[in-house]
Design a protein around this nucleic acid. Sequence first.
DNA 1: ACGAGCGCCTGTCGGC
DNA 2: TGCCGACAGGCGCTCG
Length: 272
Amino acid sequence: MPELPEVETIRQNLRRGGATLPSILGWNVESAQVLWARSLVMPGVDEFKRRLIGQQVVDIGRRGKFLIVELSKDALLIHLHMSGDLVVEENREPVATHCRVAIEFENGQRLAFIDARKFGRLWLTAEKETILSDLGPEPLDDAFQAQDLYRRLHAHRRRLKPLLLDQTFLAGLGNIYADEALNLARLHPLMLSNQVSAADAERLWRAIRAVIEEGIQRNGASIDWVYRGGEFQNYFRVYQRTGQPCRECGEAIQRIVIGQRSAHFCPNCQRL
DNA sequence: ACGAGCGCCTGTCGGC
DNA sequence: TGCCGACAGGCGCTCG
């Protein structure tokens, strides 16, 4: 369940408390379990467990699709990749089948990293910037304006869809929100980035922000067995709507493969 | 610079 | 019913 709006929903829940997760601010780590070592990028299992003990959760942040658990000494970065999720539960409950890492707190609760496909990754580090430094702009940041997007698009000659998925170009978009944004902006996913006009770029900039904001407002999207809690899946314009009528013109939504990922678009509204 | 192919993993679904 | 391929919200790597 991992694109910017889903990660942001988790961030807000872990920070302020919410429908699916309580606030974990101020909680003190008592111990940690690592059930799948490869979920850790750094440090190794032993040091990970040792260093976490005694640290307090100070804040919860986000950069792109990275969740940032700010601790008293380190930051715990979590990337959910395809199937990752976080739950808070009682320490004495048995760990879930797909639990890969569990962080246990002195108050008897634990934060469990659940990840069926084992693609998700965690970093415990005092230097989070090293890991985050390659990320592109944050789409909702006030500093990110339409002209910036235009300039960045023209700095490349790439097809729009794969470019929007490139986290060094823009941080946070994944397959759902990239397809949704391109449709809302009426741009074809195969269009070359240096061919967009200033007006195209402005529409795309607005569309990216609009779909992300709507995703956050609806608590993200829940699809299949992976994630639950969000409602945005009920409002998709094109994603996974192959063959269904475009909400604007009635034309059948098409699915093509670009860069080994599916891309959904309206062949009438989004022309090359 | 860019894109294709592949690897990492498990689960679900549709077709036969 | 069982098997088998396609597909899944991501990304790092190599190679041409």
